Simulated scan of single mutants.
Amino acid sequence: MANRDDMEMLFESDYLRRSGLSEDMHTEVEEELEEEELQDASQANMDDVDDDMDSAGTTTHNNTNNNANLSSLAVLATAFESPEVPLRDIGSQATWKLSTWKPGFGVHALLSESTDLYWQSDAPQPHHVDMHFARRVEIAKIMLYLDYRRDESYAPHKIAVYAGSGYHDLHEVLTQDFNEPVGWMDVSLAHARKDGYLKTFLLRLTVLQNHQGGKDTHIRGIRILSPDRRTNDIDDDALPFSSITLLAHSTIR
């Protein structure tokens, strides 16, 4: 007469044959079931611990969950953050106009690489610099080189930025204060549109106030930074096309 172990082996073989499962697959199913049972038991133990902690007036578990949610939000924010677009100076594409200037302290000083040069106005405030582009451009930010240590009462304290398609429809984009600035100062235009860029033909920078109540102003450099959307294969070309005809056929639409 077959013993109990033999009967169990016969029953298991018959079960495998009828279910169509191989012995390896059957073993894998059993292991998954055992793992699920262990997880259920572990979760039950954790629930018991949480109940005990809640009954004792402990808020550690809730704080942990809140921290986990905040961490998840931070990860999501990082994941959806768009990569930074490189910026380039497009000041050379503009026609520059100053409200006033002293002889020898004009536009060339604003565009120079040397911060020892500067534009100096020569009239009552406000003073302004106009940059007119032949086509509508995207502008991410303006950078100003200001030096309170050297310029003192000539250093701008409050500025305003205006934009428009022409002088007839200039509107204020922002105002910004500086407190004894030294170096390149960022004037971000990210709030101008949802995509983070101001789109305009005409840009006006106005100096509304100087430090110490000064009248005339000094600005030692202006850079107009725009997203660089040029393709790398053209930019890195040792002999780039220069004519409009060749550039028009340099890429496939």
Rank of each mutant, 00 (worst) to 15 (best):
Asp6Gln: 13
Met7Thr: 12
Met7His: 12
Leu10Ile: 10
Glu12Val: 13
Ser13Trp: 02
Ser13Cys: 09
Asp14Phe: 13
Asp14His: 11
Arg17Ile: 02
Ser19Asp: 05
Gly20Tyr: 07
Leu21Glu: 13
Met25Gly: 08
His26Ala: 13
His26Tyr: 15
His26Thr: 05
Thr27Ile: 06
Glu28Met: 07
Glu31Tyr: 04
Glu34Thr: 07
Ala41Thr: 12
Ser42Gln: 15
Gln43Leu: 15
Ala44Met: 13
Met46Cys: 12
Asp51Gln: 14
Met53Glu: 14
Ser55Ile: 06
Thr59Trp: 04
Asn62Glu: 14
Asn63Val: 04
Thr64Trp: 11
Thr64His: 13
Asn67Gly: 10
Ala68Phe: 06
Ser71Leu: 10
Ala77Tyr: 05
Ala77Asp: 11
Thr78Phe: 09
Pro83Ile: 04
Arg88Lys: 14
Asp89Met: 03
Ile90Asp: 02
Gln93Glu: 10
Ser99Gly: 07
Pro103Val: 10
Gly104Cys: 05
Gly106Gln: 09
Ala109Lys: 03
Ser114Pro: 01
Thr115Trp: 09
Asp116Arg: 10
Val129Tyr: 01
Met131Tyr: 06
Met131Asp: 01
Ala134Leu: 09
Arg136Met: 01
Val137His: 00
Glu138Ser: 13
Glu138Ile: 00
Ile139Thr: 00
Lys141Arg: 15
Tyr145Leu: 06
Asp147Met: 05
Arg149Val: 05
Tyr154Gly: 05
Ala155Ser: 15
Pro156Lys: 03
Pro156Ile: 04
Lys158Arg: 14
Ile159Leu: 14
Tyr162Met: 08
Tyr162Cys: 02
Ala163Glu: 02
Gly164Gln: 02
Ser165Asp: 14
Gly166Tyr: 01
His168Ile: 01
His171Lys: 08
Leu174Tyr: 00
Thr175Cys: 09
Gln176Thr: 02
Asp177Lys: 13
Asn179Glu: 11
Glu180Pro: 03
Trp184Gln: 11
Ala190Trp: 00
Ala192Met: 00
Ala192Asn: 00
Ala192Val: 01
Leu198Asn: 00
Phe201Ile: 01
Arg204Thr: 02
Thr206Gln: 12
Thr206Trp: 01
Val207Glu: 01
Leu208Thr: 06
His211Tyr: 04
Gln212Asn: 12
Gly214Gln: 09
Asp216Leu: 06
Asp216Tyr: 10
Arg220Ile: 03
Arg230Lys: 05
Arg230Leu: 11
Asp233Cys: 03
Asp235Phe: 06
Asp237Leu: 09
Pro240Ile: 04
Ser243Lys: 13
Ile244Met: 07
His249Leu: 09
Ser250Asp: 15
Ser250Thr: 09
Ile252His: 12
Arg253Gly: 08
